[in-house]
Write a protein that binds this DNA or RNA. Structure first.
Lengths: 147, 147
DNA sequence: TCATTCTATATTGATATCAAACCAATACAA
DNA sequence: TTGTATTGGTTTGATATCAATATAGAATGA
């Protein structure tokens, strides 16, 4: 009983060092946290990121947006469809390539992301405050590279 | 057209600093990477983590395991069911509390996790090698706290 | 031009994720 | 000991995630 299938030091090593586990774990916590934050606006954390990404001077194709978010192309198809159904983005056929489509924000999308940003700011400030001793921006940079 | 709904510096700030986005992004990349690694064994990265967590001298209830992995209780219910269906874990009723159940590894589960660990070791070593200049174990610790 | 190959996206099917609502068992209080 | 609150887990419904596969358009080479 309670027989160890692995040497204990192996179990502890994976627990303490596995970057995949540590990242999935943090990702779940943060997703819950920001999903709840944006829930009053009917947004998830991922939808927020997507809308922000489309708020700059950039009109990427679906594939390029998927790459930017390190997300599978098929996930992007589904995510774009959800946002389109809600009227937050519009999918425009590319002028030169009939295969490609570019998601662009609608008025409603612009208005919603503008409402969401102050919430993000406040919550992110809290998060920073909880990370005493850690360089939050440096961490974001490292995570951006990771994987 | 391509009209900015947000000040550009805001868009850039969120892109560069948002820990939620950065973490989700890294989590997707690592999940894909380790899912592919374990695919020949029919395991996902999350299933691997769960099996390893059950490989130590610990026989947690479902709720405690969910807490350990920072995962929602309902997700744990579903995940445990999948592992049970595959015969990798068995769900044992708690002796003192009729509500509680404890997942424990089966022989098959022990054998499979033993096969998976060397794959993890090799891949994780590669990952370390890609992170020149970063303290990987320190990063794992920070991520464990994060959220 | 035509065939081949490549590229951008979509569809399907499986698991993962969480909120909301729920049920049953336990703990606690009057 | 009954009534209430809490706790452990499950079900349902929505979105997220990705592999495998498909399709249509574009690019390329003979």
């Amino acid at each position: 009983m309670t027989q160890s299938s692995l040497p204990l030091h192996t179990v502890l090593q994976i627990r303490d060092e596995c970057l995949c586990l540590a990242t999935q774990r943090a990702a779940r916590k943060l997703a819950r946290r920001f999903d709840r934050l944006f829930a009053p606006l009917g947004l998830t954390n991922g939808q927020f990121s997507m809308l922000v990404a489309l708020s700059g001077q950039w009109a990427p194709r679906l594939g390029a947006l998927a790459d930017f978010l390190a997300m599978d192309a098929t996930t992007m198809t589904a995510a774009a469809k959800t946002l389109e159904k809600r009227g937050l983005v519009q999918l425009i056929a590319d002028e030169t390539d009939a295969r490609a489509r570019r998601p662009i924000l609608t008025e409603a999308g612009r208005a919603l992301v503008a409402q969401a940003v102050p919430l993000w700011r406040a919550e992110h400030a809290k998060l920073h405050a909880e990370m005493t001793g850690t360089d939050a921006t440096g961490l974001a940079q490292i995570l951006w590279q990771l994987g």
